[in-house]
Design a protein around this nucleic acid. Structure first.
Lengths: 298, 298
DNA sequence: TGGCTTGATAGATAAACTCTATCGACTTGG
DNA sequence: CCAAGTCGATAGAGTTTATCTATCAAGCCA
């Protein structure tokens, strides 16, 4: 029964019987039979088919919802019982927004001190994707903005505050300043994240509210790429202070506070709001709460 | 897998392999094998055995907790999918405190108008037992006091307010009064519920705070029994106004408001706090919310 | 000790599961 | 319009799992 529920979860992810079967470690006929069996048990078709996968029926969608919960709980149960005997083990799947990636180490490092047998998989995703992945339980935790855009049925633990800096070389325009305004930043050609990133949308909004217009000369979904451009001394960017510090400032590369307004975003850990949590996730939440007070000091 | 979890739930209820097997509709060896299989999967003993059932190990208790959730969700899923096609069906298990039993009909009657295919099982239990049954998901909803004693992880919907009356014959002492005080009530020989009932504890507290002492001449766990005694004209009791009205007042049998203080208890529907609820339970909550405003008018 | 209760075990049978191989419907590119 | 490819369903065989009946061994109580 639980296996079958797992089948349709894979099917929802892969949208393809063959690949879903592979993901479950069974052959395609086995998965097909499993789905069919589930449909017989429920007395209703769950999957629309017509010589290929065509999505789920409304009933199928509801079953999917329950299946995520039931399969997730089953997994949590195993992990909990296992952790009672061998301490925390398993793999923690975390997704973080690109601008927060540099801060993840602050969380994972002390965590690993305590729980050496837990492994991590960390994805770089947009804030919207993170909420989706949390909803479908494909990740155990996310690190993203806690404000601005609605978060769904999740628990949030504030981690630190993101403040913006103009990252530019010292000999570029504005490069000698102690602070700059958003109105001034709006005049500079920038490298920014792509507009599917909330960070970009926030910066666009700030520039716009300062009367400017955001027309970046270069866009990318990779902070590394943006930073490497700025590093040449010929480009500028706007990024969170902590990220700039982590990536490394030099004499010629400056991170200048941007004021008027001094924008502050709260970044936090978000986990699916289900009682009880997986032990490994609960430990991550504990670590986040322990860490939060000192993170803004760094 | 889910079957096996069901086995240990039955085992927890029955505390006996044979009876648990019977409750699950399988033979005892099948249930034994199922439990053993579960223990192998978890890699840890779940049940303490020594030629007979001796309770669960700590790990077993945790698995039980998860099993209630997982099995409950599975059941909820089936019910929901079924209700999408055939409307609400199934059986709603409700437990109510004795003093609220007369009010249950106010909830079940309009419910049944809307959902004719839902069947009811209604238990009379103490408020403490109701919370236990909710915790272990052995009932779908309870009707009990919302105040005084802590309710656990449940959602509560207020239904109505319980006000106390001295139920006595017109020609008995105090029988001609329009109101009486708790101090006066304390002087009268009473028939009351047994002390395991919260209603009794509340009345004891009220009598005590009025300087009296509660020494009922007759105790029972059945309101019917108390009422039938009062009906003879030779006994008196304290019971909620609504209950007295439901049981039927006559010229010679009076329900006299008790004042100083005028004690009011909130009675409400409580359901397990899990998202999402079973559709039949959700409909009961909806009915309760619909009904609550008018119940106090009756 | 002897009878009773309780849960584990053995062996037979039935049911369920999963695989390989193949089919038929549909899509796509030439 | 056809040939090749993709996708999911189906058939049939082999294996595994589940469940039953019958029986056993340990503990309990008189």
């Amino acid at each position: 029964m639980i296996d079958k529920l797992d089948y349709i979860l894979a099917l929802a992810r892969e949208r393809h019987f063959g690949r879903a079967a592979e993901a479950c470690g069974v052959t395609q006929p086995t998965l097909s039979a499993g789905v069919k069996h589930l449909e017989e048990q429920m007395g209703v078709l769950l999957v629309n088919r017509g010589s290929r996968f065509q999505g789920f029926t409304p009933e199928g969608e509801r079953v999917l919802d329950w299946a995520r919960r039931i399969v997730g709980d089953t997994r949590s149960m195993r992990e909990e019982i296992n952790s009672l005997r061998h301490g925390l083990t398993g793999r923690l799947r975390i997704a973080a927004i690109p601008t927060a990636l540099a801060m993840v180490a602050a969380l994972t490092t002390p965590y690993r001190e305590r729980h050496a047998n837990v492994q991590f998989t960390i994805y770089s995703r947009t804030s919207i994707e993170i909420l989706d992945l949390l909803e479908t339980l494909e990740i155990d935790a996310g690190i993203t903005y806690l404000e601005n855009e609605p978060v769904g049925r999740v628990n949030a633990i504030p981690l630190y505050h993101e403040r913006y800096r103009l990252l530019t070389s010292a000999d570029a325009p504005l490069g000698n300043r102690d602070t700059v305004t958003w109105a001034e930043v709006a005049q500079v050609p920038l490298c920014l994240l792509t507009p599917d990133m909330q960070n970009r949308r926030i910066i666009d909004r700030l520039i716009k509210s300062a009367g400017g217009e955001s027309r970046p000369t270069l866009e990318s979904d990779s902070m590394i790429l943006l930073f490497s451009h700025v590093r040449t001394g010929r480009w500028a960017s706007v990024m969170p202070a902590k990220l700039a510090e982590t990536l490394g400032l030099t004499d010629t590369l400056r991170a200048i506070p941007i004021t008027e307004p001094e924008a502050v975003q709260t970044i936090g850990l978000v986990v699916p709001s289900r009682e009880p949590m997986m032990p490994a996730t609960a430990a991550l939440v504990a670590e986040a709460k322990r860490l939060a007070p000192e993170l803004d000091e760094i």
